[in-house]
Measured scan of single mutants.
Amino acid sequence: MMAYMNPGPHYSVNALALSGPSVDLMHQAVPYPSAPRKQRRERTTFTRSQLEELEALFAKTQYPDVYAREEVALKINLPESRVQVWFKNRRAKCRQQRQQQKQQQQPPGGQAKARPAKRKAGTSPRPSTDVCPDPLGISDSYSPPLPGPSGSPTTAVATVSIWSPASESPLPEAQRAGLVASGPSLTSAPYAMTYAPASAFCSSPSAYGSPSSYFSGLDPYLSPMVPQLGGPALSPLSGPSVGPSLAQSPTSLSGQSYGAYSPVDSLEFKDPTGTWKFTYNPMDPLDYKDQSAWKFQIL
């Protein structure tokens, strides 16, 4: 009977010793046993002879290597770790002494450095960015050149030099007046198309007034536009458009034309069986010896 009264063996659950049927240790109110408190290391007290050895090595170098620390530790009968900690504390003490010396050398008012006064946003004049500046400075420094007289040679050079070769001289006033084509001369031969040399188009003023001019072949195509416009036809070669000034309004060009419109200028042929003959000019830059190549039959 006494065997049943004795408590059973101890069981360990999660490293906790349980005594038989008792489960009081598993209750929430019972805390787990805490780790033992780490003991504080005792402070090391250095003797005068030990301090002399350490100070002598510190005077040589503030960062001794492990071999120098072990050698000193053997002399003063201390572990190497204590020597390492002593050098660490000695360097910190040396830095603190240097900072105190710097503070003593500075004057009393030198510690508080005078800061520059901050400028207020409204006091300083700042350039306004509302208006974009002129990058080319046209509004201040540029002045347009004065327009020359209508009959000045410089204007003629600016007008005619675009179309004339570089080897030719500017046309005088008398020749510029001949550039304007007359109405009857352009409409006299509506079906004849003559190819003149390129030099005649640039230099010869008579080429624009003769039936064999460069633009005589364009007349049949330009004249039928007159009834559609409801007024006189516009002429690209009329009046002052080739003269001194090219800047004319469309209203000033509306009254200039080749001449009176005639039914002869239409595109319809009077004789459907007729042929169109292209007159060959020996001055043509295209060297075609066979003139029969310039004739064709309209079917």
Rank of each mutant, 00 (worst) to 15 (best):
G243R: 10
V72A: 00
P133T: 06
A260D: 05
Y32A: 01
A56T: 06
C94I: 09
A247D: 05
M225I: 06
G243H: 09
Y280N: 00
S203R: 11
L222W: 11
I162N: 00
T45L: 05
Y195T: 00
S210V: 14
A68E: 08
S262E: 02
P31K: 04
Q28Y: 11
I162M: 00
A15R: 08
P64S: 14
V160M: 00
R90L: 13
S203H: 08
N89F: 11
W163N: 00
L18E: 00
L74R: 11
M5A: 00
A117G: 09
A59I: 08
G274E: 00
E42Q: 04
M225Q: 00
P170V: 03
A17Y: 14
C202V: 08
S262M: 14
Y11N: 01
F269M: 00
T275R: 11
E168V: 10
A92H: 15
A189F: 14
P250C: 06
G148S: 09
F87D: 12
M283I: 10
E53Q: 10
A200E: 00
L222P: 00
R95G: 13
D140M: 04
V242I: 09
Q101S: 12
N14M: 13
G151R: 09
D287Q: 12
S128A: 08
T159F: 14
G148Y: 09
E52K: 11
A189C: 09
S238V: 11
A114H: 02
Y191H: 01
T44L: 14
S12N: 02
P36W: 14
Q84T: 10
G110H: 08
A35M: 10
P190R: 12
P7C: 13
P211V: 08
S152I: 07
L218M: 02
A156R: 08
P211W: 15
A198D: 02
C202G: 06
L54N: 15
T44D: 12
D265S: 15
A73D: 15
H10M: 10
Q103D: 05
L186H: 02
L229C: 03
W276G: 00
A166P: 01
G231M: 08
L51I: 09
A156L: 14
G20A: 08
D290L: 13
L253V: 07
S143L: 01
P108K: 13
Q103N: 08
L54C: 15
P153Q: 05
P263Q: 08
L54Q: 15
P133N: 04
R41P: 12
S167M: 05
P147V: 07
K118N: 03
Y11H: 00
A156S: 02
T129C: 05
G243M: 08
Q103C: 04
S292E: 00
Q248A: 09
L74D: 14
T155H: 11
A166G: 08
A260I: 13
Y261K: 09
Y63F: 12
F201T: 00
Y191D: 00
A29W: 10
T44R: 12
R115A: 01
R48Y: 08
Y221D: 01
G230H: 12
D290Q: 12
S182C: 03
D65H: 10
Q97I: 04
A174V: 11
G122L: 08
K38T: 09
Q50N: 11
T194M: 11
P79Y: 13
T194N: 05
K88D: 14
S182D: 01
Q39H: 06
L74W: 08
Q39T: 09
P184K: 08
A158W: 15
T187M: 10
G110D: 03
L136W: 08
Y191F: 09
Y67M: 09
S292W: 15
S161R: 09
A192W: 14
S141E: 02
T187N: 02
Y288F: 09
Y221N: 00
G148N: 03
A73G: 09
D290P: 13
A156F: 13
V264C: 05
N77A: 06
S266W: 15
P224F: 14
G110C: 08
Q97A: 11
E70D: 03
R119V: 03
G20N: 06
I76R: 11
V160H: 00
L186R: 07
L246S: 02
A156C: 10
S150A: 02
Q291I: 13
N77Y: 06
Y208H: 03
V72P: 14
T273R: 09
G151T: 03
G183R: 08
T251G: 05
V157L: 04
G148D: 05
V85C: 13
D265Q: 15
G137V: 08
S292Y: 13
R126T: 00
V226G: 00
A174W: 12
S152L: 05
K277Y: 12
T154R: 09
P133K: 07
P64N: 15
S213V: 13
A293Q: 02
S22M: 09
Q256E: 04
K88H: 14
A247C: 11
S252P: 07
T155P: 03
S223K: 07
I162E: 00
L222F: 10
A15P: 04
P125H: 09
S128R: 07
S216H: 07
T61A: 11
H10Q: 04
D134T: 04
S199H: 09
Q96P: 11
R43S: 15
L267Q: 00
P240E: 02
R37S: 03
V23H: 04
P220Y: 15
S223H: 08
D130L: 11
D271N: 08
L179P: 05
T61F: 10
C132G: 06
L54F: 11
P21H: 11
K102Y: 02
S223M: 11
